[in-house]
């Protein structure tokens, strides 16, 4: 049975090749949302260097990216994260509610509501703005195709939705009914809902679908950087939402793995001038006043309202995005 032996030997050789020691102790996992890939690639390298310089220990930071809601779901299902850096507070709330990984008061643990950087929602359109999109009102016009991810799975999409809602409510003297009508009309113009912000960007930019992409400011800048200012341009609406993507340590996981010290240092480092500089370079609005000033000309001045307009994330989440919430009412595909 020569052939049999040959197959066995080849298999064994492949097995040795494939097996490699991947589990080290100096390792933490950051479960993050979609558009932060470039930010954390740079930040992780900087932190590893900083950690080595201050403690002499080697640390490897692993990263996982996806739609914010989907990522929270994975952590709830057992993805063994040390820290989460998600798109909005209610996704981390969901982890706190469904597991005992961290305390329900997690958001009070770090400065600025545990949000080291902020962003907002802007419009990305094709070069020359062929459809003449200037403000939110243009998005509900018939024949305009709007690209946004699914608010059920994507954090960015929930900010998109609330930004549109806030604009419409303000314009109509705070009328909830008018806001609901406006957002319903907007979603009628959405041909496809991707699960995450990056998926939507790819749909808009690579596949060439749609007239306008509702995007994180940082995602819009990045798309222009990567794919050329000759193809796309940013339209800044008259008013938008202050998006606060928070960060948290998962207490139970870090205590079990013995990584609390490095996980906490990792998040704190986001607040240092070095961390803030990296955030600003990646088009996140820094919190530290001196850096906010330094990078002021990079970020357009928009009138921003924040989530307190909606009574905080726990209220907004329940009212709009939970099963049977307003989004379920207004979004009926194919109608």
């Amino acid at each position: 049975m020569k052939w049999f032996k040959r197959v066995a030997i080849t298999t064994a050789a492949l097995a040795t090749l494939a097996v490699s020691p991947v589990w080290g102790s100096g390792q933490i996992l950051n479960v993050s949302y979609d558009p932060t890939r470039e930010l954390y690639k740079e930040f992780n390298a900087a932190f590893a260097k900083h950690w080595k310089a201050t403690t002499g220990e080697e640390i490897e930071i692993k990263a996982s990216h996806g739609g914010s809601g989907k990522q929270a779901r994975s952590v709830i299902d057992g993805l063994d994260a040390d820290v989460v850096t998600l798109a909005l507070a209610s996704d981390i709330d969901a982890i706190a509610e469904n597991t005992d990984l961290l305390s329900k008061e997690w958001q009070a643990k770090l400065p600025y509501n545990s949000t080291p950087y902020t962003s907002t929602i802007v419009f990305l359109v094709r070069k020359g703005n062929p459809k003449g999109i200037k403000d939110w009102d243009d998005l509900v016009k018939p024949g305009i195709q709007v690209i946004t991810p699914n608010p059920k799975t994507s954090g960015g999409a929930r900010w998109n939705y609330l930004a549109a809602w806030g604009y419409a409510a303000d314009k109509n003297g705070g009328s909830e009914a008018a806001a609901k009508d406006f957002v319903a009309k907007l979603f009628k113009n959405v041909p496809v809902l991707d699960t995450g912000a990056r998926g939507s960007t790819t749909t808009f930019v690579q596949r060439g679908i749609g007239d306008v992409l509702l995007a994180w400011e940082n995602e819009a800048f990045l798309a222009i950087n990567e794919l050329g200012a000759d193809k796309l341009e940013i339209v800044v609406p008259s008013v938008s939402i202050l998006a606060e993507p928070p960060v948290a340590v998962l207490d139970k996981n870090v205590d079990r793995k013995g990584t609390r010290k490095v996980a906490e240092a990792y998040l704190t480092y986001l607040y240092t001038p070095e961390g803030q500089e990296i955030a600003a370079r990646n088009y996140y609005r820094p919190r530290l006043p001196q850096l906010a000033q330094k990078y002021a000309d990079r970020f357009p001045n928009i009138k921003l309202f924040d989530i307190s307009k909606f009574g905080g994330w726990s209220v907004a989440q329940k009212a709009h995005f939970a099963d049977g919430g307003v989004f379920d009412e207004i979004y009926k595909p194919g109608q």
Binding site: V22, D34, R37, K62, A63, S64, H65, R198, T202
Partner: peptide, 17 residues
């Protein structure tokens, strides 16, 4: 998880994104 639980097809998607 990059470099840990990404098989080749998944890695292709990540790089593309």
């Amino acid at each position: 998880i990059r470099g840990e639980t990404n098989t080749m097809p998944l890695h292709v998607e990540i790089l593309y994104n």
